[in-house]
Structures are given as structure tokens and as C-alpha cells.
Design a protein around this nucleic acid. Structure first.
Length: 223
DNA sequence: GCCTTGATGACG
DNA sequence: GTCATCAAGGCA
């Protein structure tokens, strides 16, 4: 028998699709009303769902990063910077903060904390759950490359069809096309690993705070 | 300049 | 398979 650990680390990592199981309940409105560093850990194992006319696609959140408001030099809201782009972070928790980066990709965040406390959690990777074919089409990938579907913030947005049009959506609202659900069947997170956040070299001493969290050993994590 | 990605080429 | 490098691309 071949070494499973090694197989699990390749691009041919298995994805468990659960198309026939009904979605779990949507998160409570108050679920995200906590500090970003705390929310980043609690979001691991939750199911991010996007429903469109093309169909439904979803994945289990397996990697996040916390951005802790005005004091955090790595955050867009550093120093209380309030612009059209960052505005949603100053509002109530549980809404989507989507921004464009490098001219061609989007990043999806969940607004955390209380109003006027501009904190958010970046979702960096998903384990694909529903709508694998749809995600393959959106990403232009053949079967067998599941790991490349959603192992990065830009990639997961492309796979789920998330764009700036989803800025501000209420992720706890069952009528919203973009939502956070409790996973069904349940997802066991197990051990959580943590380390410094990715690609914020400009953030000085904040560069090294261990606010990146991921499901230990999960093959869909971005690095 | 940016909370990224895919292509390319070196190396095992 | 890995790693390093680079440029694409649009908006603040």
C-alpha cells in the first residue's frame, strides 16, 4: 500500500462532494460579532455557499487570516482609514467585504466585531464540497486537479463566482445568494495550526503576528 | 503599491 | 514533484 500522507499532499487530493445532502442551517446573525482573531478560528469548518442561476457551489473553510482594525498595520482599515472600499468593515458583523487586487483577482472577507470596529477575516482556502463541476468550469480545470480549485483567496473567489457585486451581502441571511452555513454532514476540524499572515511585508511589526489559521494537514490549504 | 496567480525554467 | 522568479492587470 502506498504512503497515504504523501498522496494526500499532491494536486490529486480527493474532494468529498455531498450534492444530495441538504444544506445545514445558516449561521446566526450574531455569530460574527466577535474579535477577528477569534472569528478567524471559528470560521474553520464552516461552509461557504454561493447560489446562482448556474447552480450552487460551496466549500468548507480550511484557512483564514484575521485583520484587526485600526491598530493592525496589515489591515485596509489601519489607522481608521474609511473609504468606499473599507466602508463595510465599519458596519455590523457578518457582511461580506470583497476587494479587487492586482487588477485581476478578488478576495473575500467576513466582517467581524462591533460597528465602528473595522475588523475582518480573510478566507484563504476552501475544501470543495458542492458544485465541483461548476467550479471546474469557472476555474478552467480538468477533473483530478481539485486542489487547485480553491486553495488561495483569488482562486476560491473565481471557483465560487464571487465578485465586487457581492460587496456588503449579509452572510447570515437565508435569502442572500452568498451565505455561511453550518456544515452538513458535519465537518470535523481537528487540530488548528497558526502562523504569520501571507504577503503583508509592508506591515512592519504586524507582519509576524500569528493570525493566519488553518486546518492542520488539510491538502487544500494555500501553502 | 497592492491581503494573487499562472507560466516558465532550474533542479531532483 | 519542488522552488524561485516574473509579469499580468485595474484601481486607490
Amino acid at each position: 500500500m502506498q504512503d497515504r500522507t504523501r498522496r494526500f499532499r499532491t494536486n490529486r487530493a480527493p474532494a468529498i462532494e455531498e450534492p444530495d445532502v441538504p444544506l445545514g442551517p445558516v449561521i446566526d446573525r450574531a455569530f460574527c460579532r466577535r474579535p477577528a482573531v477569534e472569528l478567524a478560528q471559528l470560521l474553520l469548518g464552516m461552509e461557504l455557499v454561493h447560489e446562482t442561476e448556474e447552480g450552487l457551489a460551496s466549500g468548507i473553510i480550511v484557512e483564514t487570516e484575521a485583520y484587526a482594525g485600526p491598530r493592525d498595520r496589515g489591515a485596509h482599515s489601519y489607522g481608521g482609514r474609511r473609504t468606499r472600499r473599507t466602508e463595510v468593515m465599519f458596519g455590523p458583523a457578518g457582511h461580506a467585504y470583497v476587494f479587487a487586487i492586482y487588477g485581476m483577482h478578488y478576495c473575500f472577507n467576513v466582517v467581524a466585531a462591533e460597528p465602528e470596529q473595522p475588523e475582518a477575516v480573510l478566507v484563504r482556502a476552501l475544501e470543495p464540497r458542492r458544485g465541483l463541476d461548476l467550479m471546474r468550469r469557472r476555474r478552467g480545470l480538468p477533473p483530478g486537479r481539485e486542489r487547485l480549485l480553491t486553495n488561495g483567496p483569488g482562486r476560491l473567489c473565481q471557483a465560487l463566482g464571487i465578485t465586487l457585486a457581492h460587496y456588503g451581502l449579509a452572510l447570515f441571511d437565508p435569502r442572500s445568494p452568498l451565505r455561511l452555513h453550518h456544515p452538513r454532514p458535519p465537518y470535523t476540524v481537528g487540530a488548528v495550526a497558526r502562523g504569520p499572515r501571507i504577503n503583508i511585508d509592508y506591515a512592519g511589526e504586524w507582519k509576524d503576528v500569528p493570525w493566519r489559521f488553518w486546518v492542520a494537514g488539510n491538502p487544500f490549504v494555500s501553502r
